[in-house]
Each structure stands twice: as structure tokens, then as C-alpha cells.
């Protein structure tokens, strides 16, 4: 992740297309990036499939959490198109419902992290001075830290000790919010650095000076003039970070510290995979492939957006 971040930070400001004609040009450039288009299609199909999960469940007459201990490790059949897992649950349905969780966690976390990063980057770049120095030291420190062990610690924290009622503290839903929160807490750094870089350059633009000379306040300038013109690096970095976040969520869930059963996520479907590897290697195969495909698709999509939004920058 840190390599990606450093590279991204060095790409600097990109300019955004200005209007419909420019937007069409941008779109044309995006279409040229074949892998990105393929990724967009793949992600679209994936989103449609997971959105339609209840339809599949209805058609099969099953619930993803239905346990059927008499029917464990069943091979693919008409009733269970991809077979069943160690508790006799339908693998296809769990993949679809797990995909909902993984995708939503990835997107929501990326948006929150992007938001945090945007605000931090804007303030650092716009005000400069000691605030900038402080914020960037914090950013660099977060980038440098061994993130996974820290995430594990934060994921292991007993929320009951933070004053949450016990049943809420351990509920599966809480595990969902917790994972979003802690990953967002460390995932904002790329966007922060990019937005800071963009802000440093945009704040010297004459239209910003014009706004200052009219008496516009700092917030108006930051959010009204600088942010809208810095949107393309934000889009690119946020898209790229979805992949990283899905990877983090999956590893935490795999380790049993992320999304808690019975809510399925691609990561926690691999929970027992290691113990079951001799009995049912296929169970380990599907979720991993889906994580891999989703992440690589977001990465290609980010690359494609970068090329399309910023033709001048060094490609990829």
C-alpha cells in the first residue's frame, strides 16, 4: 500500500474536464483503456448479482444462513449450484450475500476515508505553516506504521469497555460498523496527500486570488473553489483505495476479527478454510477468487480513470 501511496502522491494535480465536450473526451479516453472498461463491466455484473441475491435465495428456496448439518460439504447440485459448506449452508448464496457486505464495506469505507483525507488535505494545503507540518507528520506516521497489527488490535478492542451495552458490543452488526470505522481511520492518507498537493497548486490560481480579493472566507475558497477543481485526483485515489480496503477487510474477517458470523463476508467465509483444506479445498477457492477479481477490477478502474481524467500525467 505504501508504494502505491507514494506513487500516487507524486503524480500531483490533475486537471478536470471542464464541460460536456470535455466530459465526452474523458469518456472516450476511458473507453480506450480496455482493462478499465472490462473491469467496469465486471464490477457492474457483480453489483447486479449481489443486489439480486434475495432473488437467488427465493429461487432456491433457501436462506444464506440456513444450517443443514446433514448436508455438509455437498457437491454442486441443482439445489446447491456451488455445493454447501461445513455447516451445510449454500455456498452460492453466501458468496452473493458476502459480496454485498464486502462491496458495501469497501465502498462506504473508501468514501469515509476519502472524506477524511479530503478535509485534512485541504486544511493542510490551504493554511500551510505549522498546521500543514503537523498534519503531514501525522499522515506520514500513519503511512509508515505497521497497519495490520494495529488494525488487529483495534478490531480486538472490547467495545463493552468503551461503555457500549454488552449485547450491542458483540453483535454482528456492530462488527460491520467497527470494521468500517477502523479501516477509515487509517485509510485516508493517500487522499490527504493528493488533495494537499492539489490544494498547494490550486491556491495559487488566479481565480482563487480573485475570490480572496472579493473577501471570500477560507471555507468558501476551500470548498467552493479548490475542492471542485481537485476532484479528479480524489476520484482516482478513492477508487484505488476501494481495492486496498476490501483486502484489509477480508484479511481481518479471515482472522476472525472483522465481520462476525452469521453475517457472511468473503473474508470470513475463508475463516475455517485452513482447517478444512484437506476436506474441501473448493470452499477456499471461490471467495478468494471473488476478492481477487473485485480488487484487481477496482485497481484497473482507478488506472483507467487516472488516464482518462489526466491525460498529461505519466500513464499508469
Amino acid at each position: 500500500m505504501s508504494i502505491r501511496e507514494v506513487m500516487a502522491a507524486e503524480d500531483g494535480v490533475e486537471t478536470m474536464p471542464r464541460h460536456e465536450s470535455m466530459a465526452r473526451l474523458t469518456f472516450a479516453r476511458f473507453l480506450e483503456h480496455r482493462m478499465a472498461v472490462a473491469s467496469a463491466v465486471l464490477l457492474f455484473v457483480l453489483v447486479v448479482l449481489v443486489a439480486a441475491a434475495p432473488l437467488f435465495a427465493g429461487a432456491l428456496g433457501l436462506d444464506p444462513n440456513d444450517v443443514d448439518l446433514l448436508n455438509r460439504f455437498a457437491p454442486p447440485s441443482a439445489d446447491h449450484p456451488l455445493g454447501t459448506d461445513e455447516l451445510g449452508r449454500d455456498v452460492l448464496l453466501r458468496l452473493l450475500y458476502g459480496g454485498r457486505v464486502s462491496l458495501i464495506v469497501g465502498l462506504v469505507t473508501a468514501l469515509i476515508a476519502g472524506l477524511i483525507g479530503t478535509v485534512i488535505g485541504l486544511f493542510a494545503g490551504y493554511f500551510g505553516g505549522w498546521l500543514d507540518a503537523l498534519l503531514m507528520r501525522i499522515t506520514d506516521s500513519v503511512i509508515a506504521l505497521p497497519l495490520l497489527p494495529l488494525l488487529i488490535v483495534m478490531a480486538a478492542v472490547d467495545l463493552g469497555k468503551l461503555g457500549l451495552p454488552p449485547d450491542l458490543a458483540t453483535s454482528p452488526e456492530t462488527s460491520l460498523y467497527r470494521i468500517v470505522l477502523i479501516i477509515a481511520l487509517v485509510g485516508w492518507t493517500t487522499v490527504a496527500r493528493l488533495v494537499r498537493g492539489a490544494t498547494l497548486s490550486l491556491r495559487e490560481r488566479e481565480y482563487v486570488l480573485a475570490a480572496v480579493s472579493q473577501g471570500a472566507g477560507s471555507l468558501r475558497i476551500m470548498f467552493g473553489h479548490i475542492l471542485p477543481n481537485a476532484i479528479s485526483p480524489i476520484i482516482v485515489a478513492t477508487t484505488l483505495s476501494v481495492g486496498t480496503i476490501i483486502l484489509l477487510e477480508s484479511v481481518l474477517s479471515f482472522l476472525g476479527l472483522g465481520i462476525q458470523p452469521p453475517i457472511a463476508s468473503w473474508g470470513n467465509m475463508l475463516n475455517n478454510a485452513q482447517e478444512l483444506i484437506y476436506e474441501a479445498p473448493a470452499l477456499a477457492f471461490y471467495p478468494g477468487v471473488l476478492i481477487f477479481l473485485t480488487v484487481i477490477a477496482f485497481n484497473f478502474l482507478g488506472d483507467g480513470l487516472q488516464d482518462a481524467l489526466d491525460p498529461k500525467a505519466l500513464r499508469r
Binding site: M16, R18, E206, Y207, L209, A210, S213, G215, H225
Partner: peptide
């Protein structure tokens, strides 16, 4: 504020001085 109101700027680069968005 009164100063900002009474003193206005016109810039050299008419494109750069207008927010493209």
C-alpha cells in the same frame, strides 16, 4: 470587508481568473 468591497481585481489571464467549474 469594506476594503474588499471597494477594491476589486482584474487579472491578466482571463481564463485563469475564472473558476472553470
Amino acid at each position: 470587508k469594506p476594503f474588499r468591497r471597494a477594491v476589486q481585481m482584474v487579472f491578466q489571464d482571463p481564463y485563469g481568473a475564472l473558476d472553470p467549474r
